[in-house]
Amino acid sequence: MLILTCPCCGVTGEETEFHPGGEAHLKRFGPGSEDGEFTAYLFDRKNPRGVHFERWRHAFGCGKWFHAARCTATLEVFGTYSARVSAPPEEILAMIRARRPGWEASA
């Protein structure tokens, strides 16, 4: 069971209080983009075994969206951060590197 801390309201709760929202930091391709880019944006997912960045919603709390950095192989949560960024902030990356030496963010 995951324990997440909502960065919006500061409440720490277990996973049933939250709703998962899938892969984070997808770059949106809309009208005018290549077919391949549009398809990849809509469908293709990293689905990594290991460090993953995700969107979550504090569904039964403040209702707001946020981001989480998590390991899909161990369920360890490295940290949560604001939904208003398009890439994980440096302090989250530092927390991950502290726990996963040698880890590199993939494109």
Partner: peptide
């Protein structure tokens, strides 16, 4: 469940979540 991992080894992505 490991399809995404093998696809990454081969250099492509799949519309699959585990």
């Amino acid at each position: 469940g490991h399809s995404g991992v093998l696809a990454e080894m081969a250099g492509f992505r799949l519309p699959v979540e585990s």
